[in-house]
Structure formats: structure tokens, C-alpha cells
Write a protein that binds this DNA or RNA. Structure first.
Length: 921
RNA sequence: GCCCGGAUGGCGGAAUCGGUAGACGCGUUGGUCUCAAAAACCAAUAGGUUAACUCCUGUGCCGGUUCGAGUCCGGCUCCGGGCACCA
């Protein structure tokens, strides 16, 4: 009892909390709620290193603090358990993903439990459990059964759309899948079931479409862009081809504007909002129709700069553009075909990374809609088929890419910028006046943009248009370990599975190999694939982000067998008040979950349309690697200081074999078989390692396991130290040495309560004003620190208080009891153990966070620095309540001040109450 | 190239509203204790200057606003992150 026996204490309280269900939380509408969420982990096989729990610790501290402040806090944890790594492990080792995933989860849980988190484990979710993915499938069906009504700006039921079609056709509701699709009520009436379903599919929020993928016959699989090099597969060198395959998509593009607008209503970091805005990539411009010389077709382009239309010197089509074959002249035929063959051989990845200037003239000419000038039409891979109309008007004097292209092919360049264009580089300015530009000559550019669009619209040659970079999200994976689609196909038409048949269970498979035609492994299960009535199942599965797009809702009502989450529960818990996680999900998970939330809101299932009110991105903890230097071709290692005299190879040594920089050479020999016979060239009798900061991870042998740290110093020290390392949001290196400072703070704090002999030292004496002031200053600092998530500034506040109390010999209950409450979010086991002495059978978890009082925080007297002409020359004491005039009088009477004034009269004296006296001479 | 961040002792960092720069911890140095070492405890620790009291310089660089700038404004440099043929 005398010394701080953290091992005994922590084990005792972790067991006690678990047994008592101390962190169980109920949906209690009579109490104010607060929802603190961590991004749930993917349970990988390698377990946690000290970088992983950083965000979990921060959110745990905040949760505990909010509980002490009287909130009913929802603080859950679960696992994002479907995904690729488990399936690859299955392929290589034959272990069922469910088995390896369960094993990994057990290991994660064991590690988490040692750190003393306050999760309500009764609410745990696992995305791979049928009770969970049943609702992932159900939400997918809601998206399938919905369309986005652009007139009301929200999703609605597909049945409503059918009624509209029957009444008036689609004139009021442009088809997002095919803008040219037009039909009347009579047209709808005339369609058969399959045709109608086909039309509806092009409106659905979850829809089926054909999309191009790389198909490799030799491997019998679809390959990702990065697996294709120079037209052959990276593995095996088999040829690949573009193949259109049926894939599911989410129509997230319909939500682009609301995803942008919603960012103004949430507290995310500016950089993260910017990432999302860039990803969505909204741009304002116009579509313009160019006539093609001698042909009836028109060429439609998208541009953000319609004002530069008189500077168009050539047109460029994407190689995949539908008009290419039609407009190519016989003379250019051979050249165009050769170019298309070249483009087809290049992967998307190469196309984007190499950025070669390449292209080919089609022989055709477009006509400028205003001055009728004939403009050559080229094809080039720098124009992307998937953006805008897949065709551009090139203005080389104003666009860098067009300029480079014109230079490369020696095309003439028209100057519409006057003196703003010098002929050596394009000038993309939007501030200037147009030259040689017909009816807009002399007009400022922003004005000209409007003038051109108005005229185009009046003449029916173009229209205002907004474009987005964001594409609809691919939702099919040719994989096994994911949610099966609750869909059946009859005559190639997709129908939803009835709700009563959910969940559609993921069937067992013998092997995880890809199915025929690039389909998922499920396609190998012919019995499962074909239903008794002859309809077919969907062989692919949903992507990893399906389950993670709504998990924060399930925590609110995790055992509900009748709904994904009752409206009652989601109305009570509402938005996640604080969401903590890494930036790696900036444009994936965080966009998808925002979209799903908006769709569920539109359909009336929840009452809010942004899932996360405030988001904090914790920084990464870097690893401090240790390097050893092996003389090339030998098994002899040379100490860092002497390495330059030899030719060496740098290798990583496990950080656990090194103290400071000194290598335990014996342990190093035993570490791995290849080093068993290692020899060492020492300096000053020791082997010194080199050091480098890099990512913490297995491959650098610099990962520090929290289990080891907790075993040596305890969970409370570990928690405090992780916070003490620096601001939550910045990247910072791990330094195992530094932990002793925090650990000895806890030991000293323990010493305030117990003597070394184990006597309880706390008294019931009245605290002195100084002691009260110290306490209240600390309460204030800690409260303010936690509120603005500056956990790193709280730890020094505790340290100063403990030091000062020790100095004063203060062991008074009136001070130490609130100190324990203050400390409990950071060091819960420590606080709980000592709290027992004050409240046997009670718990610090249910205490109230102490209030600080302005009166007690205030000093009796304040020391004012006195600046004379900007330099601090003296300090004077003044009563805290002194008015500025009194402080000034006291300062002027001070001998040191008079000395510095050298008899001169001050011109001006500024007294900032409580702060400073400034004298200008 | 574009868009966001950031730069403070030997190191991690603090300074919340424009008001004593360097809290707190690590490391280092010295001391106490010890046969010795470790641990623990105490003291010093931005740089320069001084026997000392002092004084000067100092928050990436240049300039500005202000009685007063790490903090605000203008112009750079470097580092980190994101996006990248999106017309």
C-alpha cells in the first residue's frame, strides 16, 4: 500500500468495472446526451502499436470528463471486420476469414482492455455479423428503392417517380444516368416491365451499370489499374483487355451540392474540408455546341471559360469519344487508328503519371459559333472521357495544357489577351480585358463569361453548366469477405430481395479463388447462385465502406431486431458530438457516411443529415528507429561513430534490443538466426546505433507495443504520457525515455495520500487560501484544456499542483478529493483506488467535476512587470483589486522605476489591469 | 503546378484576448545518499556578457502596424500533408 502498485490497482479495477458493468449506458431521454465516437478499427493481424490508441485515449478522456460533467455519454467501440486482408490471408493459409477475424478481434480486445477504456461493450458492433449486415443490406435496398429529386433537393421513393412518369413522363426530371433520355406519359405507358425497370435503374441511388475494367483472361480475373503494366498483367505478363462489366454504383454525385453545403455546418479541420471540396470538385461553366464542317452532328464541349471562345485554335476529343470514328477523314484513318491502339495499351495509371504530350488530327473541322472560323479537331489522351462532355475547346494562349499541346504540334496560337500574353507561356488569368474577341472585345473577363453564356442560350447553341470531378462510387467487389447483395436477377433484371429474407447470409465457400468471368468467389457456388425459380443471385459483394457508412447509428440501438436503429434512439442520441480518427478516411469513409446519413434523413429514418458535428484527426506517432551498420559482405557490425571508415549496409535493429542508442549485442545475436554469429566493432566499449524517425510499423522494427509499456509503467502512466507527448492533432515521435517523468508524477501524487510505510496521511484540516487557490487554478486549467482538446496542457497542470502540495505538506481531504476527480479522466485506476478511502464502495466515475471559482483563482496581489519604452525594467506588487490609477501610482513610487526614468517625466502610462504597466518616456 | 498546415532551447513541447517567451517533461551538468553503481531526491540548464549585481541578443528570413508582436499585416525561405491533365 505504501508505494504506487499500479499493476495490482489496474487489474483490480479493470475486473471490477467489467463485472459491475460500470460503463453501461442507457438511452435515457431525461438526461442530456453526449456522443463520443472513435473510428472503429479494422482488426488486422499485427495488433496495436503505441500509435493506435492515441485517439482512443483522447476520446476516452473526453468521455470521462463529460460524464463527470453530468452528461449521459455514449462511447462505444466495434470492428470494421469485412475486408480484403482477411480474405488474402484466407487465400494463402486456408483459414476462414471469419476465424482469423475473430482471432484478431480477441487480440485487439485484450490490448484495449489493458488500457482502461470506458467503452460500453454491450453495444459492440461487428460489420461481418449477420445481425449487423442484415441492416447494411436493408439500407442498400432503401437506396435501391430511391431516386434523387433535383427539384426538391432530396431523395424520394422510386414509387413516387413511377407515378410521375405515368402522369407526365420525365420532362420535369432529367435522367441522371442518361441526360438525353426523354419520354412522355404515353411513352412510359408503352414500355414493358423490363424497359421500365431499365429506365428506373438510371435514377436509383444504388444502381447497376456497365463500367470498363481491365480483364485478364490468362489469370481469369479483373485487375486493378496498378496491376497492369504496358498492357500486360503485372503478375504473369498476360495480355489484358478493357471489358465492360456490370457493377453496382452509389449515385453520390446527386448529393455533391449538399455534401459541399454541409461542410459549412460541421466542425472539421479546414484542411479536411478542403480535401473534400477538392474531391467533389465543383466547377461553374458552360456547354457549347460547335457545328462540324460538312456534317450534321454537333460537337459539345464543356468549358469554365466561355469568355475565351474567340481564342479557340483547336478542339480536342478524348480518344474514347463517340464522335471519333464518325468524323475521322479517310486520309487520317490510319493515323487515328494507330493512335487509338497506342492509347488503349496504356493503363489509366500510366496515362496519369507520365503525362506525355500525344495526340492525332482527325482531319475534321469545327466551326466557331460566333465568327465561323474553322477549327481543327484533334484527339488526345489529355482529355478525359469521363469529365464534362469528353471534349474541350482549346485556348492555347490562356491554358497551360493547351499551350503545351499547340507548341508540341506547332499549331498557331491566337492572342486574345493583348499585352497580358507574351507568347512564351499561357496566361490563365481571369482578371483582364479581352482583345480580338468580336462582340466581347474590351469587356472584362467575368462580364464576358456572362455575356457569352446569355448569347449562347439565346441562340440555342449552349447553356450554363455545373460540373463535378467526383464520380459515382463503385459498389461491387469481386470478393468473398463482404456483404452479399440482397438482389436477384430475373431475365437480367435486378429485383430486390423481400425484407423478410434478410439477412442474405454469406455462404460458406470451399475456396476463395475468383469465379468465372471475373466475378467474385461466390459465383463458384452454383447451387447458391441459382434459385429454385431460375432467378440468379449477385455473385459480387459490397465494398468495405458499406458497413462503416452507418455503424455510428447502430451503436445507438445495437440489439434492435426490427430496425437498423429506432427513430426514438436516433432522436435521442442525434449527431456524433465528437468523432476522433485519422485523416486517411478524409474522402472515403467520411464522404460515404455523410451521403448515407443524408439519404436516410431524406427518407425520414433519422432526424439529422450530417452524422458528425465535430471531427478531430489525431496525428500519427512516429517510430524512433535504431540502425546498425554491417560491413558489406561480412557479419561484422560497426558502431555508428566508426561506420564511415567502412563500406556498410544499414539495417534496422529491433528497438527493444536498444537502450538509448546502446545495443544489447547479446540480445541482438539471439534476435534472428542470421545474426547469431555477428561480430561487433565497438566504440568506447559499447555498440552505438544510428537513429532515424520514420513511420511506426513492423517493417522498421520500431513498433512499440502498448502491452509492454503498460506492463512496465501501467495504463494510467501510458494514458497520460500519450497525451503529454504533444497536441492531439500533430504528428510526433514516440520517446520511451520520456515516460519516466509522467510515471514519477503519479508515484509522487500517490505519496500525497500514503506514506512509504503505508499510512493513510490525509487529514480533515481546513485548507489554506493558498492551497485553495492552487486547486482552483488547476481545475480551471484542466477544464479549459479538456474543453479545447488540449490534453497535453492538462498534464503539466496536475504536475504543478502535486509539486506545490508536496512543498506545502498539504494532505487535506478538501484539496485531495477534488484532485482525484480532476485526475480521473487521465488516470482512472489511480483515482478510483484512492477514492475508495474517501467513499468506501463508491466510485469516482459518478463524482461531479469540481467547479472553480473566480474568487478563489484570483491572486491577492499581482506582480506587474513595468515596461519603460518597451523593456521590462522593474516589477511592482499591487493588490489584486487595485484600480489602474492606484497601480500607476504604486509603479511611479517604485525605486527601480524611478532609477530607470532618470528623473524624466513619463509622456504616457498605460496600465492593463492584471497584466502590465507600460511607461513611455 | 495548385490547395491546406507548420517553423519557438540539445529534444518533445507551453505561452487560451497583442502584455514577464521557453511552463511541464526528457536529456545534460553538478550535488546529496552509497564501498560502488543504479534508483531516489536537490540544484543549474536559450545564447552571449560579467567575479557578481547586471546588461545585450533571441520565437525560420526581410519589412510594417503598435507604448508593446511568437501572436496582427505585406513579401519571401524551408519543411510536412493533400490533390494533380477535371478544361
Amino acid at each position: 500500500m505504501g508505494v504506487y502498485d499500479f499493476q495490482r490497482i489496474e487489474q483490480k479495477w479493470q475486473q471490477h468495472w467489467a463485472a459491475a458493468g460500470a460503463y453501461r449506458v442507457s438511452n435515457d431521454p431525461s438526461r442530456p446526451k453526449y456522443y463520443v465516437l472513435d473510428m472503429f478499427p479494422y482488426p488486422s493481424g499485427s495488433g496495436l502499436h503505441v500509435g493506435h490508441p492515441l485517439g482512443y485515449i483522447a476520446s476516452d478522456i473526453f468521455s470521462r470528463y463529460k460524464r463527470l460533467k453530468g452528461f449521459n455519454v455514449l462511447h462505444p467501440m466495434g470492428y470494421d471486420a469485412f475486408g480484403l486482408p482477411a480474405e488474402q490471408y484466407a487465400l494463402e493459409h486456408g483459414v476462414h476469414p471469419a476465424v482469423s477475424t475473430a482471432e484478431n478481434i480477441r487480440n485487439f480486445r485484450r490490448q484495449l482492455d489493458h488500457i482502461g477504456f470506458s467503452y460500453d461493450w454491450d453495444r459492440e458492433v461487428r460489420t461481418c455479423e449477420p445481425d449487423y449486415y442484415r441492416w447494411t443490406q436493408w439500407i442498400f435496398l432503401q437506396l435501391f428503392d430511391s431516386w434523387y429529386n433535383r427539384r426538391t433537393g432530396r431523395a424520394a421513393r422510386i414509387g413516387e417517380l413511377e407515378a410521375i412518369f405515368a402522369a407526365e413522363g420525365n420532362a420535369q426530371h432529367e435522367c441522371p444516368g442518361d441526360r438525353s433520355l426523354r419520354f412522355t406519359a404515353a411513352g412510359w405507358e408503352g414500355m414493358d416491365e423490363a424497359a421500365r425497370r431499365h429506365v428506373l435503374m438510371q435514377y436509383r441511388l444504388a444502381y447497376l451499370d456497365y463500367a470498363e475494367v481491365w480483364w485478364c483472361e490468362g489469370l481469369g480475373t479483373v485487375l486493378a489499374n496498378d496491376e497492369v503494366i504496358n498492357g500486360v498483367s503485372e503478375r504473369g505478363g498476360f495480355p489484358v483487355e478493357r471489358k465492360r462489366m456490370r457493377q453496382w454504383f452509389l449515385r453520390i454525385t446527386e448529393y455533391a451540392d449538399r455534401l459541399l453545403e454541409g461542410l459549412d455546418r460541421v466542425e472539421f479541420s479546414e484542411s479536411l474540408k478542403e480535401m473534400q471540396r477538392n474531391w467533389i470538385g465543383k466547377s461553374y461553366g458552360a456547354e457549347i455546341d460547335f457545328a462540324i464542317q460538312g456534317r450534321s452532328e454537333t460537337l459539345r464541349v464543356y468549358t469554365t471559360r466561355p469568355d475565351t471562345i474567340f481564342g479557340v485554335d483547336f478542339m480536342v476529343l478524348a480518344p474514347e469519344h463517340a464522335l471519333v470514328s464518325a468524323i475521322t477523314t479517310p486520309e487520317q484513318q490510319a493515323e487515328v487508328e494507330a493512335y487509338l491502339a497506342y492509347v488503349r495499351s496504356r493503363s489509366e495509371l500510366e496515362r496519369m503519371s507520365e503525362k506525355k504530350i500525344s495526340g492525332c488530327f482527325t482531319g475534321a473541322y469545327a466551326l466557331n459559333p460566333f465568327d465561323g472560323r474553322a477549327i481543327p479537331i484533334w484527339i488526345a489522351e489529355y482529355v478525359l472521357a469521363g469529365y464534362g462532355t469528353g471534349a474541350i475547346m482549346a485556348v492555347p494562349c490562356g491554358d497551360e495544357r493547351d499551350f503545351a499541346f499547340a507548341r508540341h504540334f506547332s499549331l498557331p496560337i491566337t492572342n486574345i489577351l493583348g499585352g497580358q500574353y507574351d507568347g512564351t507561356a499561357a496566361n490563365p488569368t481571369k482578371e483582364g480585358v479581352l482583345h480580338h474577341s468580336g462582340f466581347i472585345t474590351g469587356m472584362p473577363m467575368p462580364e464576358a463569361i456572362e455575356a457569352v453564356i446569355s448569347r449562347l442560350e439565346a441562340e440555342g447553341r449552349g447553356q450554363r453548366r455545373i460540373n463535378y470531378k467526383m464520380r459515382d462510387a463503385g459498389f461491387s467487389r469481386q470478393r468473398y469477405w463482404g456483404e452479399p447483395f440482397p438482389i436477384v436477377y430475373r431475365d437480367e433484371v435486378a429485383y430486390p430481395l423481400p425484407e423478410s429474407e434478410l439477412p442474405l447470409m454469406l455462404p460458406e465457400v470451399e475456396r476463395y479463388a475468383t469465379g468465372p468471368e471475373g466475378q467474385g468467389p461466390l459465383a463458384n457456388l452454383t447451387d447458391w447462385m441459382r434459385l429454385p425459380d431460375g432467378s440468379l443471385r449477385e455473385p459480387n459483394t459490397m465494398p468495405g465502406y458499406a458497413g462503416s457508412s452507418w455503424y455510428f447509428l447502430r451503436y445507438m440501438d445495437p440489439h434492435n431486431a426490427g430496425a437498423f436503429c429506432s427513430r426514438e434512439a436516433s432522436d435521442y442520441w442525434g449527431q456524433v458530438d465528437l468523432y476522433v480518427g485519422g485523416t486517411e478516411h478524409a474522402v472515403g469513409h467520411l464522404l460515404y457516411s455523410r451521403m448515407w446519413t443524408k439519404a436516410l434523413f431524406d427518407l425520414g429514418y433519422i432526424g439529422f443529415d450530417e452524422p458528425f458535428k465535430k471531427l478531430v484527426n489525431q496525428g500519427k506517432i512516429g517510430g524512433d528507429s535504431r540502425l546498425v551498420y554491417r560491413i558489406r559482405g561480412t557479419n561484422t557490425f560497426v558502431s555508428a561513430g566508426l561506420k564511415d571508415t567502412y563500406e556498410t549496409d544499414e539495417l534496422h535493429a529491433d528497438v527493444r534490443l536498444v537502450t538509448g542508442l546502446e545495443l544489447d549485442t547479446e540480445a541482438f545475436r539471439n534476435w534472428r538466426a542470421e545474426y547469431a554469429g555477428a561480430e561487433f566493432i565497438l566504440e568506447d566499449g559499447v555498440y552505438r546505433c544510428g537513429a532515424r524517425l520514420e513511420k511506426m510499423g513492423k517493417r522498421y522494427f520500431n513498433a512499440v507495443n502498448p502491452d509492454d509499456v503498460v506492463a512496465q509503467y501501467g495504463a494510467d502512466t501510458f494514458r497520460m504520457y500519450e497525451m503529454f507527448l504533444g497536441p492531439l492533432e500533430t504528428d510526433k515521435p514516440w520517446d520511451t525515455q520520456g515516460i519516466t517523468g509522467v510515471h514519477s508524477f503519479l508515484r509522487r501524487a500517490w505519496g500525497l495520500f500514503y506514506s512509504e510505510q503505508g499510512e493513510w496521511l490525509v487529514t480533515d484540516d481546513e485548507p489554506s487560501p493558498e492551497e485553495l487557490r492552487l486547486l482552483h487554478q488547476t481545475i480551471k486549467k484542466v477544464e479549459e484544456g479538456i474543453e479545447r482538446l488540449s490534453f497535453n496542457t492538462c498534464v503539466p497542470a496536475y504536475m504543478v499542483l502535486a509539486r506545490e502540495l508536496a512543498r506545502l505538506g498539504c494532505r487535506k481531504r478538501a484539496i485531495l478529493e477534488p484532485f482525484l476527480v480532476l485526475l480521473s479522466p487521465f488516470a482512472p485506476h489511480f483515482a478510483e483506488e484512492l477514492w475508495q478511502q474517501f467513499h468506501p464502495g463508491g466510485s469516482v466515475l459518478t463524482a461531479a467535476f469540481p467547479q472553480w471559482s473566480e474568487e478563489l483563482v484570483a491572486e491577492e496581489s499581482i506582480e506587474y512587470p513595468v515596461q519603460i519604452n518597451g523593456k521590462v525594467r522593474a516589477r511592482v506588487q499591487a493588490p489584486a483589486a487595485a484600480a489602474p490609477a492606484e497601480v500607476e501610482a504604486l509603479a511611479m513610487a517604485d525605486a527601480a522605476v524611478q532609477h530607470w526614468l532618470e528623473g524624466k517625466q513619463p509622456k504616457k502610462v498605460i496600465v492593463v489591469p492584471g497584466r502590465i504597466v507600460n511607461v513611455v518616456v
